[in-house]
Design a protein around this nucleic acid. Structure first.
Length: 336
DNA sequence: AAGGTACACAACCGCTCTTGA
DNA sequence: TTCAAGAGCGGTTGTGTACCT
């Protein structure tokens, strides 16, 4: 598959288009259609490469292009679709009549990405930013300082902090490990109903090192359901998956942007054991497939006005806002 | 008013996929 | 089946403009 030597011919003009060039291109295409883009510039009398002409037409000169600011409706559609499709700009553009992939991409990079970051949401995963974990120890210490000073000696405090730090490091390692294996694997792990004896190769490749980590992690959390048997070393069995899904996803009860289930914006005291008792969310492996049905679902969920109960987060309705520090601090995972 | 900086967006680059000979 | 051209796509860059000091 050789790459077409498009614009490297010398003498062809690059850079911004002039109005004269635009007029020539529009006039030609209106009269003859674009036909072969490579042949077009010569036939139209333009000193541009065909690719440049095609981009200029599709991104700017096409008569059905809608210009101007994005409406809030369009904005939330982009956010919802991006949560499903990722950076599939053309797929997203196909659901926004009159908008080009380039325009949406630019709008995403200059506005929406920053907006999400300022909201504490990772623009790529549409989940709360994981780098928040880096400041977690400080948050935990601040929130629990008084209680600690009342009930524990400094030595005890230091020892617990050390254990918690170790636990967090292991947890982050595991998160990365599972992320590396991809969304399908994550879905399998998070969805006990998929547990069976024929695991995908990637999952079977999780080495016993990871399971050791999981096992040691459980020992740190004496308040949770550590009565469950520790997983065997070696590759994951169906039992292991079930075990993991029920015991070792301390964040599994976090609101998930692609979660079918409900979530609560502020955990109550009754939720304090949710890590142990709450059912594991049934995640859907959307992946990066560009599946138009999913995209349609994203649009449909938006138009139905069902912003909190559908499979995707609503970015424009404050009722769904989440105070993440509250979640951390009320979570038994982070109790000393 | 001038220079510097940040931002927005059009355009380009280079890779991949599709298609047809 | 192979190969090359055409086309599509996502990431990046360059340039104009607005804003700030």
């Amino acid at each position: 598959m050789g790459r077409s030597p498009c614009c490297d011919e010398s003498g062809l003009k690059k850079g911004p288009w002039t109005t004269e060039e635009d007029e020539i291109l529009v006039r030609y295409i209106k009269k003859h259609g674009h036909g072969s883009w490579r042949a077009l510039p010569k036939l139209a009398g333009l000193n541009r490469c065909g690719k440049s002409c095609r981009l200029r037409w599709t991104n700017y000169l096409r008569p059905d292009i809608k210009r101007g600011k994005f409406s809030t409706e369009e904005e939330s559609t982009i956010l919802n679709l991006h949560a499903v499709l990722g950076n599939k700009w053309s797929a997203i553009a196909s659901h926004l009549p009159g908008r080009t992939d380039n325009e949406i991409k630019n709008y995403w990079n200059t506005h929406l990405k920053k907006k999400l970051i300022s909201m504490g949401v990772d623009p790529m995963t549409h989940r709360p930013r994981t780098d928040i974990f880096s400041s977690l120890p400080q948050l935990m210490v601040l929130a629990r300082l008084k209680e600690l000073m009342d009930h524990h000696s400094l030595e005890e405090h230091a020892m617990r902090l050390q254990l918690q730090a170790e636990a967090m490091a292991k947890l982050q390692y595991l998160q990365r490990l599972f992320e590396t294996l991809g969304p399908t694997t994550s879905s399998l792990i998070m969805d006990p109903s998929t547990s069976n004896n024929s695991l995908p190769n990637g999952l079977a490749d999780i080495d016993h090192q990871a399971l050791k980590l999981l096992s040691s992690f459980s020992q740190l959390d004496q308040t949770s359901s550590c009565n469950a048997p520790a997983p065997n070393s070696g590759s994951l069995s169906a039992t292991d998956i079930d075990y993991l899904s029920n015991n070792y996803f301390p964040f599994s009860h976090f609101p998930d942007l692609q979660n079918d289930g409900d979530f609560q914006t502020s955990p109550t005291e009754d939720d304090s054991n949710s890590m142990v008792q709450a059912p594991v969310p049934q995640l859907t492996a959307f992946g990066q497939t560009g599946d138009s049905q999913l995209a349609n679902a994203a649009v449909a969920s938006k138009t139905n006005g069902d912003s909190c109960n559908n499979s995707l987060i609503s970015y424009d309705e404050p009722s769904c806002s989440i105070s993440w520090p509250d979640i951390f601090l009320n979570d038994p995972m982070f109790q000393f």
